[in-house]
Design a binder for these strands. Structure first.
Lengths: 370, 370
DNA sequence: GCAGTTAATGAATCGCATG
DNA sequence: CCATGCGATTCATTAACTG
């Protein structure tokens, strides 16, 4: 069986050059170089990082899920007078698109840019759900090569039940690709507990097959050495961040630290460099700091940057903060990319946000923003 | 957000007309009309069924998984002299392809044919693994329409460990599509046990949200009525058929009855008609009989037909057996469908099999072939 | 009859030998 | 050097056996 050969995903505008002019990163403040945060478009920023010849052991991409919604974040503050908790809503990120074609058109160059930044032993993990995972996988096969596909990780969670006449969706998908299929990737084997039935039959000892003279297997036996468990599979049961968890930041679509921690433990070692082009609430940066991994995050949303700065500060880090500046703002190519992009809809987070003044010790000197 | 619009999967030969001449079904033997088995190419057979205007509430498709291997089946028999068990290997089905393009070219017309046979309230379930699931999903979106996509069901199992530097693959994927998005589909809500943490907090009582005067939720409380559990999600933990299970037939890639049973319980009612164009070991027919669903299975492999007949006989059914005959054997279109099909490779199971004489009470009058 | 123990073996992957 | 094939590995599971 050959490579994928001729099978490919096509849409109008796929081959249009991706939008990003000449970009440079401007240092906004000093900070810990092992924890960097860039405010700006992640495509522009990743290309600028490429010119700095940075290389990453893991790129974790958690893009919008094509929900068709404008996502809001909740900010909680103590009212100075009454002392009560005041909740206020603000924009987080815009996940509205003219269609799947536009969504993929934006995602594709970012996947390419992330791939280009990977270390030879590194890998990329793309977090999506079942609305887009299949298209994303075909796209990634094309970008990375089919032989670089490593895993479809299923993150299984539990959630509030709904009454739809369907099996309730209780999983997300994480697609993992290695940079180089001929290089041994960074990988530390993690283990799960043995199945109850296995423990009942074999205890905690490692099993060993016994063969007869002709090389045929006769039976198995347990050994003295204790089994570490069964190698971690690609279906992970991890709870979502509870609505009242200390971990919760108020930023929508926040991912649990336990999920990111497992990825980091398996795919990186302490000191390795991790890229997160969709920072959101800053979970990756936070866990990287806790586990001794160097991290670089990018986000265009001022809300994301603010939440992340607070969260890191609460963890005792002041990140090195930079800004991605596109010298020559590219024109939106509009009509040439097909009817679906010509609806004149307001675009997300590329204009009108760079004016925000960012301070390294931004905003509140309080605790975690719960 | 519009429909998928322009995003599509392309490959050389995609638009070639699918191979199947004028086909008719020939009754080979009388039998139970609620349990039919057709020996022949499933595309030809499905088209012939279409001319009979049959309509199905569920089509379960379990095609080869693009493993690149010739799969064998194990036949066990008691040696007439020594009384020992004699194992012998025979062909089951050929899963070797020139590439993904050829695989998809064969799958696509079968998906179309299956869709055409569905009842308006019916659904199709395609069982694949992560090598092909993403391509298959894009294909199905095109055939059924994105709005007909219902679920990506993850079947999670446990199995022997391997030492690869990767998360071990422990899941298959079942893609479910409904025929008509504007019709309420057959669906019976099934339940799972509550999570241990939920039981600890709430016991087994049904929770009830409590609201204050302004319609804001205050807290929840338990009620007297016992909770049926949490609605069944789209990640299913079901064990593979154990090597020594009574259920095991010796046919490779056999699916557990528990998996099919869950599908039937949720997507059909007693008396509904179920289609299985890739019968294999006959699990679907067997479970349909047990649950009172009428079933029609198709398989081109003589081994599959033999195993299925024995299995059904052990369950007390004699299926109505037919044969799909293509009056005018279509020529393999070879070179016109692209280089990857022009390698002169031996084709799977379409020729040289129809000569086999099939008897309704075929082969051994023994018990299940373990 | 039931519980506990023993037997049997699927099939993914790696490593090594062979051609 | 690359393709092929076989041996080794090792949980998971149920049937069969034993006390």
């Amino acid at each position: 069986m050959g490579e994928l050969g001729a099978v490919r995903l096509d849409w109008n505008g796929k081959e249009m050059p991706a939008l990003a002019g000449l970009t440079e990163l401007c240092l906004v403040s000093p900070g810990d170089p092992a924890c960097r945060l860039i405010h700006g478009d992640n495509l522009a920023a990743m290309r600028a990082l490429g010119r700095r010849a940075m290389s990453f052991m893991l790129a974790y991409l958690d893009p919008p899920f094509l929900t068709g919604r404008l996502h809001l974040r909740v900010t909680r503050a103590r009212h100075t007078g009454t002392g009560g908790i005041v909740r206020s809503l603000g924009p987080a990120f815009d996940d509205r698109w003219s269609g799947l074609a536009e969504y993929l058109s934006e995602l594709r160059p970012r996947l390419v840019a992330a791939r280009d930044l990977l270390d030879d032993r590194g890998c990329m993990v793309l977090h999506v759900d079942t609305k887009t995972s299949h298209y994303a996988k075909v796209l990634c096969d094309e970008i990375f090569g089919q032989s670089c596909f490593a895993s479809e990780i299923v993150w299984r969670y539990r959630r509030w039940p709904s009454k739809t006449a369907n099996f309730q969706r209780v999983h997300d998908v994480l697609l993992r690709y290695v940079k180089n299929p001929r290089t041994a990737p960074r990988f530390r084997q993690l283990y799960e507990p043995l199945a109850p039935s296995t423990q009942a039959t074999w205890g905690n000892g490692r099993q060993r097959a016994v063969f007869d003279g002709q090389g045929r297997r006769k039976r198995s036996s347990t050994t003295e050495t204790e089994s570490p468990g069964t190698p971690l599979g690609d279906v992970w049961n991890i709870g979502i961040v509870a609505p009242v968890a200390r971990e919760r930041t108020g930023y929508p679509t926040q991912k649990p630290e336990a999920l990111i921690e497992r990825l980091l433990q398996a795919c990186t070692e302490p000191g390795d460099l991790v890229l997160d082009p969709y920072v959101g609430s800053g979970t990756t940066l936070s866990v990287c700091h806790r586990l001794g991994r160097a991290a670089l995050g990018i986000d265009a949303s001022p809300g994301a940057v603010e939440v992340t700065l607070r969260r890191l500060e609460a963890a005792g880090v002041v990140p090195l903060l930079e800004r991605a500046r596109t010298a020559e703002r590219p024109r939106r190519l509009g009509k040439t990319r097909g009817a679906e992009a010509a609806d004149g809809q307001q675009r997300r987070g590329r204009g009108g946000q760079n004016q925000m003044v960012l301070r390294a010790r931004a905003a509140a000197p309080k605790c975690s923003p719960t």
